[in-house]
Design a protein around this nucleic acid. Sequence first.
RNA 1: GCCGCCGUAGCUCAGUGGAUUAGAGCACUUGUCUUCGGAACAAGGUGUCGUAGGUUCGAAUCCUAUCGGCGGUACCA
Length: 543
Amino acid sequence: MEILRDALKKAILELYGIDFEPEIVEAPENIDADYSSNAPLRLAKELHKNPMEIAGELGNKIRDTSVSNPGFLNFKLSDEYLNEKISGLFDKFEISSDKFAGKTVICEFSDPNPFKVLHVGHLYTSVVGDSISRLFEYAGAKVIRANFGGDVGLHVAKTMYILRQKNLDDLTIEDIARCYVEGTAAYEDDENAKIEITKLNKEIYKINSENIHEGELAELYWKGRELSYEYFKNFYAEIGVKFDKYYPESTVAGLGFEKVQEELEKGVYEKSDGAVIFDGEKYGLHTRVFINKEGVPTYEAKDVGLIFQKYADYHFDRSIVITGSEQLEYMKVVLKSVEQYAPELVEKTTHLTHGLVKLPGNVKMSSRKGNFLKAVDVLEMIDMELKETYSSDDKKISLAATKYAFLKYKMGGNIIFDPKESVKMTGNSGPYLLYSAVRAKKILKNVENKKNINNYIYNIYEKNLVKKLLEYSDVLDEAVEEMAPHKLANYLYEVSQEFSRFYENCPVVGSNEEAERIKLVKVYFETMKHGLNILGIEIPEEM
RNA sequence: GCCGCCGUAGCUCAGUGGAUUAGAGCACUUGUCUUCGGAACAAGGUGUCGUAGGUUCGAAUCCUAUCGGCGGUACCA
């Protein structure tokens, strides 16, 4: 409600000569007003004045206001104002800040490892990461969606240790996943296997960095790697997420290794027990190994390389990295070390985390142990529910259900993913949003434009809908600022609820109020289309 | 041990200085129903906002302590 904010700001400046940013909130139901502000209360201390007195003085400057205890200033919006405002909305949704206009933002997320299977967590991060990318695009940024994954490293060695013994003609991603589970068990239980795997890790690193294609191990490695990337691309295509850039770990490992070596000489990193470490304890963090005693760069060094490689490739203005929250402390150490020699890059970097996806009843999922929910399992479950309950096989609907189920949660905490519960398509769900949007669309098909009514007075359902619709641009600004798609998701649900109430109580087609109501339906539909698009959700023709 | 995140209704979650009654969905009960499509709408109620102090005109929200859950804590990612 910028207009109220601006009017109040101006009044405060004129009366008291203070440059103050007032907050406007929705007025409670029992007050005969639409919005209210606590500005008088917040100004009371500075002005040494009674808040009620301040509210009264400000109220005299702005029309349609009232005051209430202990010092709130309430605003009432006239129907003419709402009408004018809603008419101006339609399909123009512009961001108020130009903070990201023309900027380059690189968003890294999903980050699956080749030689491993995509699990439900990858689905979650892909959906959220894509939506955050879309928020930045809406804000005017050029966004590069980047995907980082371990095509070399211990997990590959563990897999290859088993895979090479098996002699499989027709290699599938499931075979590879099984080998990983077996390899991990061998690494943990069998001392000889551990030694062998450590050796393999070094060999694979060499095969990759020197691009060796001769020999059984090399052939198997490249074949498996290729298969993995195919499998990823297919999956992302299925959920409608498109990456602009893949950074296999091997492509940044060399750069990271060099950087760490370079800074080792300058004293940022140090040697300890034959490894190269960063002493994070100096900064209240913990110590981590960047190059292990085998001389192989760890994930830490690769992440260092990645930061520099991203900047070399895109000269980003902002870099967003989205990972699971278990990497929070780890990332702090990596960034703190880089801050010592490239503070300008670290300053531009934001690390966002999401929680673990857990099954109900505290069942732990672990890809190391092989007991986990695969990403495709979730998609299949939702497809099945749609088929069984609604006899539909519309991918748009099942994808909306899946995406919304993840996007409605605030990022950060763990998510309990109850397959049975998540599959429901009523209430606060993706299909509910689609359903109300489709209803609106249907109405729009059946009407022709009629003349507006002068001095139209909204009824309660219309007014509630209008007020909610007018909040949209504020919600978007907030979602961008906080990189929080759930704020948008929640808003779209609320506005759909208002629309459903309106729909039940206010016939549109053929009514006397048709012209005015059609305006609301149109703005609602355009808002939904715009907002759902930012969530990566498409509205189907019918459902 | 140390560091970080979390604790709100039976369950899953919003709300993170603003109000008299702390909100949604699910589940449960009942009603609307030849209407622009019922995947809908309406009504029904449970909460020591983990606990105890403190700051404030005002605290689920900020501070301190404490309990509980989870994650991280040197060669995994």
